Computed example of a mutant assay.
Amino acid sequence: MDASTPAIRLRALTKEFGAVTAVDHVDLEIQPGEFFSMLGPSGSGKTTVLRLIAGFDQPTDGTIELFGTDVTARAPFDRDVNTVFQDYALFPHMSVLDNVAYGLRVRGVGRRERLGRAREALASVRLADFADRRPAQLSGGQRQRVALARATVVQPKALLLDEPLGALDLKLREQMQVELKQIQRELGITFIFVTHDQDEALTLSDRIAVFNAGRIEQLGTPAELYERPASRFVADFVGTSNLFDAELSAALLGRDGEHSVRPEKVQIARGDLPPSGEHRAEGTITELIYTGSATRIVVDLDAGARITVLEQNDQHRGDADARGDRVVAAWREADVVALAAADAPEPEASARP
């Protein structure tokens, strides 16, 4: 296999369920060793694409290649991938070690070898001391790592993860995001991660495909998607954006078309302090939302737009703001992002990093 061969290549992949097109002619390449996320709301097609790659569903049209081999018609067990689901699906009557070794047992690997490899897999997820426990004796994060060990012990070329962190509480979820990325780097396996959580995708991924209505709306690195969203949908779904329609763009920016500005790019000036930025607009504070490390300030501009400003709660920020205060909002020209028109043809997504 050539070193430039993608780990996964999808060509015009389509899946229809009756009159509903769940996946609409998706073209995509994922590179070996990449942590790749498919992000989108419910019903956007991301999970269906994952199931098509795994072989759980058959496409209506198009092809699926794994490391240069067409596997479109192959059964799930005949594809060199493994899947981790949100519910983990561990066997409650088996020990952790036997759960991890199960896939090797099914493949006919001898007892000594499979138990040795299972212990190595548990060590890779830092659970070597838990081999004799049952799943019920583990925390949610530990069960998630057991599921990862079980999926990776058979040494698949790619690992498919269907919202595996969805059942965890927020703090454990954030901890597991860091651990999951470390595990992926240590194993060097291609990870394909499905999530509807944009913060999770931004944290974990080398690249992200944002799905909408069965198609890829934009494909790029986390920084590219956040800093330069290609459409109103991406700007609104990936993070929080202040969105200006054509009328507001003309009034506030002197530009045609739709535009966006991220809340942390906007500054507000109070009293006699001069605002910083080429674009300025007067308004009234209508809400203050304290979030710990930052405060979200909602401002109704006189021009008719409602915007959000994100200010860090550092030693320079006072507590004198109140609803009803008059302020000037300002932002730089360089931070204004032009958004593609809704009826414009979507650019073909490049698959190369």
Rank of each mutant, 00 (worst) to 15 (best):
M1D: 01
A3S: 02
I8Q: 01
I8S: 01
I8C: 00
G18K: 05
T21V: 14
A22M: 02
A22P: 04
H25Y: 00
D27K: 03
D27M: 05
E29G: 06
S37G: 06
P41A: 00
G43K: 13
S44V: 00
T47F: 03
V49G: 01
A54C: 12
G55W: 00
D57F: 04
Q58G: 10
P59M: 07
T72V: 05
R74N: 13
F77K: 15
R79T: 08
D80A: 11
D80R: 10
V81N: 13
T83H: 05
V84I: 09
F85S: 01
F85T: 04
F91Q: 11
M94C: 04
S95H: 03
N99T: 10
A101I: 03
R105F: 04
R107F: 05
V109Q: 09
G110C: 09
R111N: 14
L127M: 12
L127A: 05
A131G: 14
A136Y: 08
G141V: 01
G141C: 05
Q144R: 13
V146S: 04
A147G: 15
A151R: 12
T152Y: 03
V153Y: 02
P156V: 06
A158H: 11
D169H: 07
D169S: 04
K171M: 03
R173G: 03
Q177C: 02
V178S: 11
V178C: 11
I183T: 09
R185N: 06
I189M: 07
I189Y: 00
T190N: 07
F191C: 09
F193I: 03
H196S: 06
Q198L: 06
L202N: 09
L202R: 08
L202W: 04
S205A: 13
I208E: 10
G220F: 02
G220K: 09
P222H: 02
L225G: 11
A230M: 08
V234M: 15
G239Y: 04
T240K: 15
S241C: 03
L243M: 11
L248P: 05
S249A: 12
G257M: 07
G257Y: 02
V261R: 05
R262T: 02
R262L: 06
P263G: 10
V266F: 07
R270M: 09
L273P: 00
P274K: 08
P275D: 07
E278V: 10
R280D: 10
A281M: 10
T284I: 15
Y290T: 02
R296Y: 03
A303P: 11
R306M: 11
G318I: 08
G318E: 10
D319Q: 13
A320D: 15
A322G: 12
R323K: 15
D335C: 05
D335R: 06
V337L: 10
D343L: 11
A344T: 08
P347H: 12
A349S: 15
A349T: 14
P353Y: 00
